[in-house]
Design a binder for these strands. Structure first.
Lengths: 343, 343
DNA sequence: TTTTTTTGTGCAAACGATTGAATAGCTGTC
DNA sequence: GACAGCTATTCAATCGTTTGCACAAAAAAA
């Protein structure tokens, strides 16, 4: 930056004092005469002096910048998380530098590299779908570098993380479907390598088991892509045949549910009368579609807030997360809308 | 950062050479013996040396970081823009630091301040709804600091910017409604202080004028909040009365349209048979609601890409935007879906 | 008046990397 | 054997800020 920004040196030269004096005067150090302080501050004001954060970073080995790694900004859930992160970071004087991996491991690794050379003070991570080994994280953690994982959990012992109670959320959702009298419930599952997918599936299974219903493996279908096209096709195929047709769907997330909803409509099946439908994540559109989609809401903003709050505590060493690792699990909330209510 | 990151000095010490030698060896400067180069590179590799970007920034007065100011991440449109920005920035070795203003001017100003003290090389801005005077931008521009505005245009002569052709988009949308035989078309408008709102309204007016229909001011209603609740209420009130009831809506964006759609449904009005509906921005959900919403799609990703490409050119002085200011206008696309087709 | 204490400033090194200029040790030439 | 010319390396300053220590002058105590 050219920007002719005034520096401490400029002030010092102009006032015929040393840089040290200016520095101290600006920070109201004791041992500087009131007169000098006044003159320094006055000039600083006039020149619109703004401390050079880069120089400060270098000097203090602290950049007041934290890195955020997420798969994709355009996922509504992630954008709410970012919003929460931003909010707390900003009010604590931290900057947020953002990298999205587009679900790719190589991008994840190189993003971390650039961020590290930019001397970030800590990292908030929701890793990519491709990430199955976690050395690039655990190496950093061994060096005491502060990392908080959110939403997606790494297979690293004692990793500090914030997630939602996916198991419970899924359990509640399916239990609700059962209470509404639905019997043959399909689960459109997420990518099997993500912990969240497993948790949701387990919740689904538990609810069935509790109701004394034996799980039918043919009703559990993985939708790794997570787009509406995929689930449209899957659902259409599943419900085409009248014989032994399922009567409800619990989807891994709302986009998947939306695809399923369209498939059901194209088959002239009524929702919720013929088929009940519950999604996950409470995407922005869920309440606006017809019928409004029942879903499990995840507190995205809260996740972001919590994660960065913990990260800042790690950075400031206010709490020793090493001896007392923390895994925060936030509650989900089942939002019952029209798509799953038939009694 | 503790991180015991190896520095040039560490390598120098270990190898009993000076830092300068190490620096030059790493960059294959001429005048360093092959033997030394080999040893330096080998050790650098072994120590996993990574240049300190902060030190570099300070030295070179260039941070390879650009700042992005947007109103809110959770707006789908903005998140696609960010995605485009991210992509190009990353592949050019730039970092993105992100601040959302939550539509507040004070946040906007203080964000810019922090970003500047972090020595960003340039700024991409979509300013807040509250921003009505632009001194905080024009001051910077006078100092030749690179800024590109997107989506929202400041009242600054010669500001470099990227927008979509909102006028044309709105015009096409309303023309389409007219072609479908709708006659009394409501416009649920955006905040009147934003240029985009004006442009869309003008497009609406032009289409009407062309069709020889006199604009009825009572059919143009501002929805400054832009949430579905607001437009729900407005729409309900407008359509409640059978007498002289409007027969179509052109909404300032899809959320507003979605609110209107719910209101219409609650009045048992059929879409598109009784009332036609077109939104704006092609939010993710628009294709998934029932009926699927016709809308004007804005190329968010492309906007991001274009804006940062121009910014990088300004930063690298590849092009002189000062003598030849540029205002890029990207085309929108009318996506005709069910909500507006009745013939 | 001399010594001690206080007050206000300045010096210089440091953070990590770069870079123009200086220098040391060669080899080769006349 | 003196000196030019080359190669490989080091010196030192620089970017903007902070901070331990030294130091001078003035004020207070002896």
């Amino acid at each position: 930056m050219k920007l002719g920004q005034a520096t401490i040196k400029d002030i010092a030269r102009e006032l015929n004092v040393s840089s040290s004096t200016v520095s101290r005067a600006l920070k109201d150090y004791p041992g500087i005469s009131d007169e000098t302080k006044r003159r320094v501050k006055e000039l600083a004001d006039k020149l619109n002096y703004r401390p050079n954060a880069v120089a400060l970073s270098l000097r203090k080995s602290k950049s007041f910048t934290i890195g955020v790694i997420i798969p994709e900004v355009v996922h509504f859930f992630f954008s709410t998380v970012i919003s929460g992160i931003e909010e707390v970071a900003f009010s604590n004087g931290y900057n947020v530098i953002l990298c999205q991996t587009n679900e790719r491991l190589d991008r994840e690794k190189s993003s971390i590299d650039t961020m590290l050379s930019n001397q970030i003070d800590g990292l908030l991570v929701s890793f990519s779908k491709e990430t199955t080994e976690f050395d690039h994280f655990s190496k950093l953690m061994d060096l005491d570098f502060p990392i908080v994982f959110f939403d997606r959990l790494p297979e690293i012992p004692n990793a500090v993380n914030v997630t939602v109670n996916d198991f419970e959320g899924a359990y509640q959702a399916v239990k609700h479907l059962l209470e509404q009298g639905y019997k043959r419930i399909v689960h459109l599952a997420g990518p099997s390598n993500l912990a969240i997918s497993k948790k949701r599936k387990e919740g689904y299974l538990k609810a069935l088991a509790e109701a004394g219903i034996e799980a039918d493996e043919s009703l559990i279908i993985e939708c790794p892509g997570g787009n509406e096209k995929e689930s449209f096709d899957v659902t259409k195929q599943l419900f085409e045949n009248e014989k032994n047709r399922p009567d409800a769907i619990f989807a891994h997330h709302d986009i998947v549910a939306a695809g399923a909803m369209m498939a059901l409509k194209s088959l002239d099946l009524r929702i919720p009368e013929d088929v009940g439908l519950v999604g996950y994540s409470n995407w922005q559109f869920s309440s606006m579609i017809d019928p409004p989609l029942s879903t499990v809401s995840q507190p995205g903003f809260k996740i972001g807030e919590t994660a960065i709050t913990m990260l800042l505590e790690m950075i400031d060493k206010k709490r020793d997360y090493k001896s007392e690792p923390v895994q925060v699990v936030l509650d989900t909330e089942l939002l019952v809308r029209k798509s799953s209510v038939r009694i």
